Computed example of a mutant assay.
Amino acid sequence: MTISPVPSPPEPSLCVLAEQYGYAKVVKSASQSLGLSIFAGAFIALAFVFYITVTTGAEGAPWGLVRLTGGLAFSLGLVLVVICGAELFTSTVLSTLTYVHKRVTAKQLLLCWARVYVGNLFGASLILLLVWVGGMHQLDHGQWGLNALNIAQHKLEHTWWQAFALGILCNMLVCLGVWMTFASKEALARATLLMLPVAMFVSSGFEHSIANLFMVPLGIVISEFAPAAFFDGLGISAMSYQDLTFANFIINNLIPVTLGNIVGGGVIVALGYWVIEQQSKLLQIKGH
């Protein structure tokens, strides 16, 4: 008698894998979550250091190519986050899937988001301190610092609703990049899948709340604490950057961008795919 092979169970969908990913984040111990989120904040800050470096002094090059180069450089941050297992707020919002599956409470979800956000802030602030003490703003005769100032100031030129919309667009791409990594267990493949979505959001000027926790405070620190000789050497006035204040940053950039990031990743990507998954299951049930 021929024995039929036992059929292997079907591979879980990316939506199921994303839900498992989010659940692991929410139930992780607070100390472990905080530690990993500090690393993530540092990784994203280092990625922005890389971005500033590769785009400094490129004024004569084609605008789009400069942005693409900077975006590819910045993708190092998310690659480090995913491959090294750190906790980044913008990808953590995918855990809304866990909430709609009723595996965690709203309180657990929000506490997870809060500790990851705070940890990301600590990590970004640590790199900011090291960059300032290291005098990186003086690189290329101060052009590095000038580039950082201009990037930070540009982020505060958006209206509230522009910042919100750019935050949505940003985290759609970040979370779609992370979503794609669920399709592979190979580190190189996962890293490669992340690069273009991240390069697109950075080169297109979309807004990432955790990156801004480093970038805008860096501009504020340079504008407030760089000596007069720094500005004199560049032939500019520190008063040109008087809009760079923490109050302006928090109200007109950080709050709308953070909310936009939650909508883009936690609602549009996560819940959008969840709705489609539920419809698919209903059709399968009706088919039987």
Results as ranks from 00 to 15, higher is better:
T2E: 09
S8E: 13
L14C: 10
C15D: 04
V16R: 06
A18V: 08
L36A: 13
F39S: 09
G41N: 04
A47G: 07
F50G: 04
A58H: 04
A58G: 10
W63E: 14
G77W: 00
L80A: 12
A86M: 05
L88K: 01
S95T: 14
L111T: 15
S125H: 01
L129K: 02
L130M: 07
G134H: 02
Q138C: 11
L139N: 08
H141Y: 03
L146E: 04
N147I: 12
H158W: 05
W160C: 10
F164S: 09
I168W: 00
N171M: 06
G177E: 03
M180V: 09
T181Y: 00
T181H: 00
A183S: 15
S184K: 02
K185V: 12
A187P: 02
L188A: 15
L188H: 09
R190A: 13
A191M: 08
L193S: 01
L193N: 00
P197F: 01
S209I: 12
I210M: 01
F214D: 05
V216G: 10
S223I: 12
P227A: 09
A228K: 03
F231T: 09
I251A: 11
N252G: 14
L254K: 05
P256C: 04
T258Y: 01
L271F: 02
Y273T: 13
V275E: 00
V275K: 06
I276M: 15
